[in-house]
């Protein structure tokens, strides 16, 4: 089932085209790695799905509902931003309470506390978010993204600030989410981190989709095993095509 479909979405910031007529389709049970150089539009695309950035043209549908119609679709999305955006003075406990309060309805299968427990969030319950280290904020952010058992999980550079142990915990969580037939969308520059967690790779460049392939497809095409080698080879062949 297609959970998110993006239809001919374009977005300009001033004169700069950030998203150039992008059409994509994301299905449940997939774990998609969104990669590309800096400024290729990865974060803008994610923000467009979340409704933070409003596209100039085109449509985004989540579960066949146009997202501009109602904010309700965000109920099934968990989002971990690139930089954790938390109010400085709020305590960790208050943050969870506030979001629980705003979301009103409890998720069908109850709150997903596995990351909350693994990252030992309970220990920092009474600390203000402004006093947490960058990595700890990322942990809180990840725990919050999974907390409401969302069907769609969007992670923007999740591994940037995490220590190796937490990184492994998060990767394992992403793998289980994928096995539960949920959709995971991850952006990262560190391709080795994406190696074990993604089933599809989308490469964005200058606001366009350069390629969109499943890992198996890439493997048989390139005869390589490591993701970074596969991507490098595909990029090379693309360049040859252009020349």
């Amino acid at each position: 089932m297609s959970l998110i479909s993006i239809k001919n979405v374009s977005k300009k910031f001033g004169k700069q085209t950030v998203l150039d007529n992008i059409s994509l389709d994301f299905k449940d049970g997939n774990s998609i790695a969104l990669i590309g150089p800096n400024g290729s539009g990865k974060t803008t695309l994610i923000k467009a799905i979340l409704g933070l950035v409003l596209p100039d043209s085109g449509q985004i549908l989540v579960k066949n509902q146009t997202i501009s119609e109602s904010p309700q679709y965000r109920e099934i999305i968990g989002y971990m931003p690139q930089l954790s955006l938390f109010p400085q003075n709020m305590k960790v406990q208050e943050l969870f309470a506030l979001i629980e309060n705003i979301r009103k309805e409890k998720p069908k299968n109850g709150y997903d506390v596995s990351l909350y427990q693994d990252f030992e969030i309970a220990k920092m319950r009474y600390k203000a978010l402004g006093t947490l280290s960058g990595g700890m904020k990322q942990q809180v952010s990840a725990a919050l993204a999974f907390y409401f058992s969302p069907e769609i999980i969007i992670l923007d550079e999740p591994t940037a600030g995490l220590d190796p142990l937490s990184n492994e915990i998060l990767k394992r969580k992403i793998n289980t989410a994928q096995q539960d037939e949920r959709l995971v969308l991850t952006t990262s520059h560190i391709l080795s981190d994406l190696d074990e967690i993604c089933s599809h790779v989308i490469y964005l460049m200058e606001g366009k989709v350069l390629f969109n392939k499943s890992i198996d497809e890439m493997r048989s095409q390139t005869k390589e095993n490591r993701l970074n080698k596969m991507v490098a080879q595909l990029l090379n062949s693309k360049q040859h095509e252009q020349n």
Partner: peptide, 9 residues
């Protein structure tokens, strides 16, 4: 920012 990514208008 935090509020805008929640299911509210």
């Amino acid at each position: 920012h935090l509020l805008l990514i929640q299911p509210i208008r």
